[in-house]
Design a protein around this nucleic acid. Structure first.
Lengths: 232, 232
DNA sequence: GGCTGGAATAAACCTTCGTATAAGCGGTGG
DNA sequence: CCACCGCTTATACGAAGGTTTATTCCAGCC
């Protein structure tokens, strides 16, 4: 019942689900390299390792898709020319799955339209060979930083979603209406209950969502994207 | 004192300040072309006009900076090679001012690093000459769409900001603390006032901000970026 | 049949909110 | 000087929020 005291931005939620995905030593960071040239793989690997990153190497998109990738802040380094699949198609495919991670392209022969497509699709950077080591490292660190930020945001939202899913149908209904600014009395009328009943559900919502105040609850509803707009 | 009744998404705010910036016929859209080649300017102008856009032409960055640009959804079409200034520098300069608008680059001789820089800096597209008419039109319409969306968001926030600025110092203080979830009594303790005083300010805040409920006010505080986090 | 458990409700009670009335203080501007 | 505005407080009252206790109804189960 008592939630652990971990500071969270703006909201006093502490998602349980800790201890579940805890397999990596906290602040580990991973670079994933997909390139069909073994010598390139090795060179990149040693470069990336030199700044303390874990590295995973793959020779093809298919190999990558089949592997299990550590669930830590990470970034994909990709040659745009890959055996069997264009790097751009690969990028799109990755973005569509839960293997989602920032992508950095390398190329020896790319053109501008290709670059534009990649960047529009959200690539972190697009490096032309030859490039300086530091360029790649900067890009990878930026990508990993992006991924860490996304993870943090997702983590908060997921925790919230998990709590919200523990609410009964009525409780969810009441939460939505209360957060849209209606008084208990109005909520009662809206869904055909007595005011007391609404109060009880409301209390249960506050407890289950671990909200210390109505303001807290409203922010949670916002983060969850509940329909709190229509009114009037 | 009484605000006009215009529906606003999710929040029952109605910013006054209407009738001030009302100089353009509502849904007008503008393409701004900066290119030192007169024949290119003319060709682009007639192309863009053909789909109903207003067009402004400039031969140089300096000329553009000196002109007054209509305050409507708009988009800048720019050759990356400009007299006196690189298109990229120009882009950065524009982003820093209130002339801020989406940028589309055209180039006959660009390279990939240049493209990457431009896209990272937020360019909508980067077209290599020769390009098909439709490519440019698609890009311009996308850019204008972005600008319209930004304007809409800014408009709501600005309206909110304007209301917030009408609050006295104490009222702003109370609003922040109330929206962070504190009870009147706690707010009073926090800033050394009696509870009644806080209640009065709170009421004035609700009235001045035109908030129908606490939930409303909390959402406004969020949109305004008030520090509602620290607590505990 | 009888038991259990969840949903919904009522009554009672206390807290918190919100507003009105009245009143005191200090600075600004006509 | 006075009017006005912002800031402050006290008292009082009615409305809304929140919890507890107890009761009813109904569905599922041994």
């Amino acid at each position: 019942m008592i939630a652990a005291k971990m500071p969270l931005p703006s909201m006093s939620v502490s998602a349980s689900r800790a201890g579940a995905a805890a397999s990596a030593p906290a602040d580990e960071q991973l670079a994933v390299v997909v390139d069909d040239d073994p010598s390139v793989r090795e060179a990149l690997s040693s470069l990336l390792r030199s700044i303390g990153l874990k590295v995973e190497l793959f020779a093809s998109a298919a190999e990558f898709m089949a592997a299990r990738i550590a669930d830590v802040p990470r970034c994909l380094v990709l040659d745009i020319r890959l055996p069997g699949m264009s790097g751009l198609d690969f990028q799109r495919q990755i973005a569509a799955t839960e293997r989602n991670m920032p992508v950095i392209f390398m190329t020896g022969f790319g053109d501008i339209p290709m670059t534009v497509r990649a960047m529009k699709a959200g690539a972190v950077d697009f490096l032309t060979k030859p490039f300086r080591d530091q360029e790649l490292l900067d890009a990878v660190l930026a990508g990993i930083g992006q991924d860490r930020d996304r993870r943090r945001a997702d983590g908060v939202t997921d925790g919230l979603k998990a709590l919200y899913d523990t609410l009964s149908g009525r409780e969810q209904e009441v939460m939505t209406l209360v957060c849209s600014g209606l008084m208990n009395k109005q909520v009662a009328g809206e869904i055909g209950l007595s005011e007391v009943t609404v109060k009880i559900y409301r209390g249960q919502v506050m407890r289950k969502m671990n909200a210390r105040s109505l303001a807290d609850l409203v922010r949670m509803a916002e983060a969850l994207g509940l329909e709190t707009g229509r009114r009037g």
